[in-house]
């Protein structure tokens, strides 16, 4: 049963990956990409890594692919034109593809030579979420916190290098808006027929 599921899922992954690069419409490419993410998540469930599978769906399908879709739809990129140089790179691309295939086969055969029947998807814990969090929040707590600080530095850096407080532009000031009284903005004027309004008075909100 598992074997059948594995073959079905891997066929779908491979086929949808091929469609990602062969689809003419970039939006279709992204949709094929989402399908391949989903099926890859299914493969992860098959080996018992259910947490990673959920993470793949949440992060890649939920965030990254949607972002891709936005980018593809918002940017006016002529993909037909982009693909015109495709053949120029096919030789070097093919060589790299062959090399990568060879590397994957070497590694896979080296790993396959060992006994993989006692593969443990959640070492040292009941579930693999617990195993992962042990590594992340207990064993490598220092690194996790430091990664947070590094990201904070990147944020401070981006702000310090780019943010300019311009004085002449108008910003929304929520506190000023809510603290405003009716009398500050509206004035009741009793207009006599044929007299018109003296506009200089309306600033003060005075009723004459």
């Amino acid at each position: 049963m598992q074997l059948i599921a594995f073959y079905i899922l891997s066929t779908v992954v491979l086929l949808s990956a091929v469609f990602v690069i062969s689809a003419r419409n970039p939006v279709h490419s992204v949709l094929w990409l989402i399908l391949s993410f989903f099926t890859a998540a299914g493969l992860l469930v098959l080996i018992g890594a259910e947490f990673l599978a959920m993470l793949l769906v949440v992060v890649y399908v939920g965030a990254v692919a949607v972002l891709f879709l936005f980018v593809v739809m918002m940017l006016d990129v002529d993909f037909v034109e982009l693909k015109q140089g495709f053949l120029n790179y096919s030789v070097i691309g093919g060589i790299i593809a062959v090399l990568m295939c060879a590397e994957i086969i070497f590694v896979a055969s080296a790993v396959g030579a060992g006994d993989i029947s006692n593969f443990d998807p959640s070492p040292g814990a009941d579930t693999n979420a617990a195993a992962l969090s042990n590594v992340l929040y207990t064993d490598n707590l220092l690194l996790f916190q430091m990664a947070g600080v590094v990201l904070l530095i990147a944020m401070i850096g981006a702000i310090v290098l780019t943010l300019r407080h311009r004085t002449h532009i108008k910003r929304q000031k929520v506190e000023d808006q809510t603290a405003r009284h009716r009398g500050d903005a509206v004035s009741m004027v009793n207009v006599q027929p044929g007299q018109g309004i003296d506009t200089s008075d309306s600033e003060r909100g005075a009723t004459s």
């Binding site: 220092l142 690194l143 430091m146 990664a147 590094v150 530095i153 850096g157 310090v160 290098l161």
Partner: peptide, 23 residues
């Protein structure tokens, strides 16, 4: 090795920003 790299990055990242501090 991991702590070393994280420390180096923390120092470097803040240094890059400081070098460009005069906008």
């Amino acid at each position: 090795l991991m702590t070393l790299y994280m420390g180096v990055e923390m120092l470097s990242l803040s240094s890059y920003v400081l070098a460009a501090f005069n906008r």
